[in-house]
Amino acid sequence: MVQHRLRAATHPQATPLPPASATNRRMARAPLYAAIDLGTHNCRLLVARAGERGLRVIDSFSRAVRLGEGLHHSGQLAEAAMERTITALRACVARMGLYELHSHRAIATEACRRAANGMDFIARVMHETGLDISVISAREEAELALAACTSLLHDRGSATGRGLLFDIGGGSTEIAWARIDRDARRHDLSGYVSLPMGIMTLAERHGNDIFTDAGYRGIVDGIVSILRGFDDIHCITREIARGNVMLLGTSGTVTTLASLAQGQGRYERAGIDGSRLSVPQALAMIDSLRGAGMAGLVRNPVIGPDRARYLLPGCAIFEAIVTTWPMMNVTVADRGLRDGLLLRMIGDRGRHGGPAPTPLSFPLHRHMEHRVSP
């Protein structure tokens, strides 16, 4: 138990432990949950319990596995990408083995939806790690992104309104259009669109062309033409003109832009999640990033070599969204599908009640232990 307290206190996403109180002791006894989000680019784990406002994070893990590398050209998950991903998933299983979990869920998104061998890979993961991964639909992906941002959607504005949320992923971009009832603390998904393009798919499709004016503008214009159809169906522009819409972005692209806008020397989540990013400032910053070229992006401490190749593709998607739906600010969310999964699991237990949980334990295999990152 002491080890778990130390992890909660030192992990960068964890909430600092306040002085002991009845509420704090009750939260400390609350069941633990774990969620894994296997995306086209990243593999992420979050271990948390219910907190006073949302989640109380105990542990997290993230690794860029690039599962979808080469998928655009081959239609298949590559062997090297699958090996990298299984190594990361073994690390996730080992981490979960440190805790007695009430429940857990693991999901996969666009890369496994699209790849011809996606379900074969899911079966292989089960065989090699014991982890049961569900491949979710684009609709559930949009719903989970909305669930993750519940507190942000409900904490600002009038009693009723609209929320337009975008999540720029590795293989796809999800856009959710929601009706918000802040008095009832609820929101309903009115519509969604899943664009079959993300930071990895655009990087592979366009290569270095994205660093040219013609290449970049062509990508932006192509995405805008797709989004116009979604706008025509849901009359989003009309609602924006009424001042009735909250624009909310969750992805590495938008959090990186927010970090750069704040002048952070290195990325600090505490100043980003829930902050507002000026759209005109973001667009000016994108122009500057495009002028820096690959070498300049690599040297930037907030971006670095791992993200440099994929930042401009994300910026092109971001620019297409704010061109289609011009607003002055976007609310930035450093949270994602893992958060939505955890909140859904916690909410299900709260609604259904029932007996005390039976802890779920994951064995710590010796051949996995060295794979766990500090």
Rank of each mutant, 00 (worst) to 15 (best):
L277D: 13
M246K: 09
A284T: 06
R162M: 03
A81L: 11
G163W: 01
I175W: 07
A88M: 07
M82Q: 11
A108P: 00
V65I: 11
L195E: 08
L45E: 09
E369D: 06
A138G: 02
L77D: 15
S278R: 07
A35S: 01
I223G: 05
A214N: 06
S251L: 03
V332K: 06
L17N: 15
L55Y: 07
P313E: 04
E83P: 05
L364E: 11
G265F: 05
G229H: 05
P355A: 10
V220G: 03
D339K: 07
L98E: 15
T255D: 05
Q281H: 02
H206S: 08
I175L: 08
R182C: 08
V298A: 09
I180R: 08
H102Y: 11
R307L: 13
R371D: 15
E128V: 13
A147C: 12
A145C: 11
E268K: 06
C235N: 12
C112Q: 04
A147D: 15
R105D: 05
A28Y: 02
A78P: 02
L289P: 02
R113G: 00
A88R: 01
A261Y: 00
D132A: 00
D132C: 08
I36N: 08
A261D: 09
S60D: 13
S373W: 10
A148T: 12
V2Q: 00
E100M: 04
S62F: 01
R349Q: 10
A316M: 02
R49V: 07
S74T: 15
S158T: 04
L311P: 01
G340V: 10
S151M: 08
G293Y: 00
S259P: 01
Q281N: 06
G97T: 11
E140L: 10
T250K: 05
